[in-house]
């Protein structure tokens, strides 16, 4: 049996509230539904992805990303939790302590942006897809995600000027990251909270394509279901698979599987 090809997708944008966590959770759920082995890495100190899909509260978890980044690689098996609120999705928890971790990496690590890449190397060949949820900043945690990733998705809040400012800065960081991770490939910008009837959304759609270069060919609509799913600690698929927003994430998963040539693991 040949070893699996593993893609590592960073979901990054330092604009807060643009839909990073929502994208990671629902994309992971849809990919798992398609039979792929999926791991979510929560690099955000707010740990919202962990609070949403984790069975435990992050404060009860012995080895989160915070500990993993600062410890020897032997801790990796302890960091992976295969039981989550979404079947087929494993999780490395985030933690409030990640803020401190970032400072310590900066002070102590010889190659501070490459710790995550080294720590998750052994997972290549085990998972089909690893999704990294980034914090809303452009500091070390995000550069660790970008250095560890093979691919990048940039969620952009449709219609938001502020979101566009953020994208410009992010692309500058990506350019720098290419020095240590030349293979990092942009899948594209993902427009979130999109309403095609609104002029601002149409405007941003055009300028996102222009600024980032690639636009993923699916729009995630505004929906109250997103907030409901966070409360219910479910994926949108589990909450209401027929809703428009759930269907949009399914479409996103299909696009990614096709574009990255991911074979689904067979079992459905």
């Amino acid at each position: 049996m040949t070893e699996k090809k593993t893609v590592v997708i960073a979901v990054a944008n330092h604009k807060g509230g643009c839909g990073k966590t929502t994208t990671v959770i629902n994309l992971s759920a849809e990919l798992a539904k398609m039979g792929l082995a999926v791991l979510v890495i929560d690099l955000d100190p707010q740990a919202n992805a962990s609070l949403h899909i984790g069975k435990k509260h992050p404060s009860e978890v012995a080895v989160t990303c915070a500990e993993l980044l600062l410890s020897e690689i032997e801790k990796l098996p302890l960091a992976i939790h295969s039981e989550t609120n979404i079947e087929g999705v494993s999780l490395i928890y985030g933690s409030l302590a990640l803020g401190k971790t970032e400072d310590e990496l900066k002070d102590d690590a010889p190659r501070p942006s490459e710790e995550l890449r080294d720590k998750i190397k052994p997972l290549h060949g085990i998972y089909d897809v690893i999704l990294i949820d980034c914090p809303p900043s452009l500091k070390l945690l995000t550069s660790n995600a970008l250095a560890a990733a093979t691919h990048l998705i940039v969620p952009v809040e449709s219609g938001s000027q502020y979101g566009m400012y953020g994208v410009t800065d992010l692309m500058k960081l990506v350019e720098k990251i290419h020095r240590i991770n030349p293979g990092l490939e942009l899948i594209g910008a993902l427009l979130i909270r999109h309403d095609e009837r609104q002029t601002v959304c149409k405007l941003i759609e055009a300028s996102a394509k222009n600024q980032i270069g690639k636009l993923i060919d699916v729009r995630i609509p505004t929906s109250t279901k997103v907030n409901q799913s966070a409360i219910a600690q479910m994926s949108l698929h589990a909450l209401d698979r027929t809703s428009k927003v759930a269907r949009a994430f399914r479409q996103l998963a299909e696009i990614i599987v096709k574009q990255l040539n991911l074979s689904n693991g067979g079992s459905k």
Binding site: L51, H57, P58, S59, E60, L96, A97, I231, Q233
Partner: peptide, 11 residues
């Protein structure tokens, strides 16, 4: 959810 988060001892 809110209770669980409030009860968690996070520094």
């Amino acid at each position: 959810n809110n209770q669980r988060h409030a009860d968690a001892s996070q520094a």
